[in-house]
Design a binder for these strands. Sequence first.
DNA 1: CATTTGATGTTCT
DNA 2: GAACATCAAATGC
Length: 203
Amino acid sequence: MNGLKLETDFYRREDVVEVAHDLVGKVLCTRIDGDTVTAGMITETEAYCGRNDRACHANNGLRTQRTETMYRAGGVSYIYLCYGIHHLFNVVTNREGLADAVLVRGIKPLDGIETMKRRRMRTGGELSPALTAGPGRLTQALGIVTGLDGTSLLGDRVWIEDRSISLPGDEISRSPRIGVDYAGEHAKRPWRFFLRESDWVSR
DNA sequence: CATTTGATGTTCT
DNA sequence: GAACATCAAATGC
């Protein structure tokens, strides 16, 4: 609770890799259909750049119905269906016309844990990383679905807070992105950021 | 433990 | 028709 909602200045910076780094330690919050607020600290992110990045859906200016959201000005969500089952959540960054986004791959549960367990159909079970570690898992726990694609992150359904969680300088590690082998050389770029030593990261 | 496979729907060729 | 920013359950050691 009592965090400061991130504003457009945070999202509209030019360097999506920098935004991906800075999102680690921030708190992703949702309030879906008047339900309890559910929230968790972001533990893992990946940057995708619309220009010269074969791993990005909107690479080389590819404009489709799906990727159109990525071209909007920073500060909205980009949510799409992956493998026909999983709703993956991204943060659109940069200015209008440039398709940059940050994929959120893991959170550590903070608020509304019982609600998250219910959405994941894991009531009664022990609190484990299976609840929210992984891009498809956290969206289900937070109630995020593709119907929320394009939602403003300055609104009251999906937003991100700065709760002044302090992380030691060496806590954030970086590595190549996961599951993008098809991108060739670009797959090797170290554009994944994650909390070292955290249980709440994917894999 | 590690590895494989089935689920499932949208997008793009 | 193939590929896909994944996950959970099943199978193989």
